[in-house]
Nucleic acid binder design. Structure first.
Lengths: 342, 342
DNA sequence: CTGAAAGCGCTTACAG
DNA sequence: CTGAAAGCGCTTACAG
C-alpha cells in the first residue's frame, strides 16, 4: 500500500492539487465547504504529506543532528532526553550520532549531517578534538550550531555550559572546610575544556586558602575516556605514592566510584582517612556505599536549553535575522553525602 | 553560503546536469576526462547532494526510526549504541524517539516517523502498550518493522529477544542450588511480555524442583516503571510480611539495587540471610556492595542484531522480495557475584 | 474562491 | 559519449 498523495485526493474530489494543498493548510482563500471535504477524505485515506517533497520546497527539514561522545553515559543520556523532549514540542526530530571521543569520527558525522540537510546541529565535543575546521565549516555554511558541555572556546557559536571552574572550586573548598589538609585531583584527560577548568578551580581553591599546590598530586588518565578503571588505577597509584593525602577532588563520578572501590579493597576508610568529592551527580553516586558527595550537573536542563537556543537560531536564520552567539551558564550545586566529613 | 547544486557545477563546466550527475556516480557511459573534471570541481566546491531531492526520486531516506521507552537506562543506551554503530556501517541515520512507557506517546511517535518516511522502524514497546493497531498500521503500509526486547507476540513482524523464561529459570535455579528454601520474586509491572516470561521461568523452576509456588511471594510494582524505589519499597514490605524468605529473584538490576540498599539499611545480611539475583547485568551491579549476581542481557548485540534484521528487510522490500518474519533469540548468561552464596 | 504553472534538486529512460 | 525531458510530491506567486 503506497502512501496517498495530494494528486490522488485532488482526483477523487475533482479539484486541483493547489486547492487540496491549501485546504489542508487552512488557507483563508478556500471555501469552508471544500476544506471540510478535503480534510475528511485526507483523514479517511490516512494522508500524510511526503516530507521530502515538503522539505525540498521549503528548505526546512524539521530535523536536527546531535553529535555526542558517548551514548552509554548517565549525563549524556539525560542530555539526549532533554533535547528530544524539547524538540518534540516544536515538531523537530533528532538524529543522534556518536563520536566515540574520536576527532575523525566526529568530523565524518558532522559531514553526514550537513549532507542530510538538517536544520541545525547540536554537539558536545570528543575529548580527542583539538582542530575545529569541521565546526567552522558548519558556521560558514550558515547552519545554526550550538555546543554544550564540552565546548571549544575558539569556535564562534552559542554554548550551553556550566561554570566548571567555579563548581570545582566549591568542591575543593568543601574538602578544605571539612578538614582536609592535603588534597589530590584526578583530572581526567588532558584536552577537554572542562577538564582544564575543573583543574583550574581546584588549583585556585588551594591557593586562595593558602595551601600548597603540588603538581604531583594531579593524576591524569591514560586515555581520552573517564572510566571506572581509571579511578581504580589512580587510587592505587596515589595510595602508594602519597599516603598523606586526605582528600581527592575527582573529575567524574564514574572515576570516583572506581577510586572508592579500590580504597574499599585496600581497607582505606572513607571519609575518615580520605574524603572524596566527585562530579556529575550520576544516579549511582547516591546509591553506592559510601554515597558520594558530588557536584550536580543538570544534564536534562542542559539538553533542553541547548535545543531551545538552537531553535531560536534556526528561526532567526529562516527569517534572515542576524543573531550573535550566546554563552548560557547553567547552575550547579554541591550535593553533600557520606564520602566527605559531616 | 548556499549549498552547491548540480546545476551550478554543470553551468561552470558548460555541460549538462545529466552528465554531471552521472559522472559523480561513476556511470560507465561518461568519459574519464569529463568524470575527472566534474569530480574535481565538485570537491573544490564542497558539493554534497541534496538528500531531499535524492530521496524524493529514489523513495529511500537512508534513515530509520527508533522508538524506545526510556533513553536514560543502561540497557537501552547500549541498544542505541549497537543500533547506531551498525546503521553507520550501511550509511543509515537513526532518529530516536522516547515513548516514556506511554502508549499514547508511542502511537504518536510511530505516526511521526511514518510521515517522515523513514525506511524502517525499530521499536521496544512501552510497558503501557496493550493495543497494537499502530504497529499493525506500519506493517499494512509495507514499512519494515522490527521489535526488540519488549515485544508483542501478536504482531506479525521480526523480533529480537532473549529467552526470558529460560534466563529466569536459570536465575531461580541458581538460588535453589545455593541453598535457598523460600524464594520470592519481584516481577515488575504486570503487562510487558518479559515480565510475564520472567515470572513464568521463576515459577517453573520452583515447581520443577518440587518447591511450593506461593503467589504471596510475588511482588508487583505500583507503576509501569522499574525504579530504585520499587526495590526499596518491595524489600521493606517483604521484610515485614515474609521474614522467612531467604532468596529473591528480581526482575531488573535497578530494582535489585534498591532492594539491597533497603536490606543494608535494615541490617539484613546478603547473602547470608537473603540471597539476591538480578537481571540485566547493568554495569553498576558489578560495583555496588555486595556485587550482584545477575543475568547478562546483551544490549549492544541486541541493537546490532535488530538493525541488521531491519536492514535485511529494507533491502528485501526494495527489491520486492517477500520475506517472512524471524524470531531471533540472543544468548544470556548467569553472572555469579557476591549477592548469592559461594 | 479556484486552478495552471513554475520550480525545489535530483535521477534515469531514452534519443542521438 | 552527451543531453533534453519527464517526473518524484509538494508549495506558492499569480491570474482569473
Amino acid at each position: 500500500m503506497k502512501p496517498v498523495t495530494l494528486k490522488e485526493i485532488a482526483e477523487k474530489l475533482n479539484i486541483s492539487v493547489t486547492t487540496v494543498s491549501k485546504a489542508l493548510k487552512d488557507y483563508s482563500d478556500v471555501s469552508p465547504k471544500t476544506k471540510a471535504l478535503v480534510k475528511e477524505l485526507a483523514a479517511t485515506l490516512n494522508y500524510t504529506p511526503n516530507s521530502f517533497a515538503v522539505h525540498l520546497r521549503t528548505k526546512e527539514s524539521k530535523t536536527i543532528g546531535l553529535v555526542i561522545p558517548e551514548v552509554v553515559h548517565h549525563f549524556f543520556s539525560n542530555v539526549i532526553k532533554g533535547i528530544i523532549s524539547e524538540a518534540e514540542k516544536e515538531g523537530y526530530l533528532v538524529i543522534i550520532l556518536q563520536s566515540n571521543e574520536s576527532y575523525e569520527l566526529e568530523k565524518k558525522q558532522i559531514e553526514l549531517l550537513m549532507s542530510h540537510r538538517v536544520d541545525g546541529i547540536l554537539i558536545s565535543l570528543a575529548n580527542g578534538t583539538a582542530d575545529f575546521k569541521h565546526l567552522n565549516a558548519v558556521i560558514e555554511q550558515d547552519k545554526p550550531l550550538v555546543m554544550f558541555d564540552k565546548i571549544a572556546k575558539l569556535v564562534k557559536c552559542s554554548k550551553i555550559i556550566i561554570d566548571d571552574q567555579k563548581a570545582a572550586y566549591i568542591a575543593t573548598q568543601h574538602l578544605i572546610d571539612t578538614g582536609c589538609k592535603r588534597i589530590a585531583h584526578f583530572r581526567g584527560p588532558l584536552l577537554p575544556q572542562n577538564s582544564i577548568d575543573r583543574f583550574l578551580g581546584y588549583k585556585k581553591a588551594l591557593l586562595d586558602n593558602g595551601m600548597e599546590y603540588d603538581p604531583n598530586l594531579v593524576y591524569l588518565n591514560d586515555c581520552d575516556e573517564n572510566s571506572f578503571d581509571d579511578g581504580k588505577m589512580n587510587a592505587a597509584k596515589l595510595y602508594k605514592e602519597h599516603n598523606d593525602v586526605d582528600g581527592i577532588f575527582i573529575n567524574t563520578d564514574m572515576v570516583a566510584i572506581g577510586a572508592i572501590s579500590e580504597f574499599n579493597r585496600l581497607g582505606v576508610k572513607i571519609p575518615e582517612e580520605i574524603s572524596i568529592v566527585g562530579f556529575s551527580n550520576w544516579f549511582m553516586s547516591s546509591v553506592i556505599s559510601p554515597t558520594i558527595t558530588t557536584i550536580d550537573q543538570p544534564g536534562y536542563a542542559m539538553g533542553q536549553t541547548a535545543f531551545k537556543q538552537l531553535y531560536k537560531e534556526i528561526k532567526a536564520h529562516k527569517n534572515n535575522v542576524a543573531i550573535s552567539p550566546e554563552i548560557i551558564q547553567l547552575e550547579t550545586a554541591l550535593v553533600k553525602r557520606e564520602s566527605t566529613k559531616n
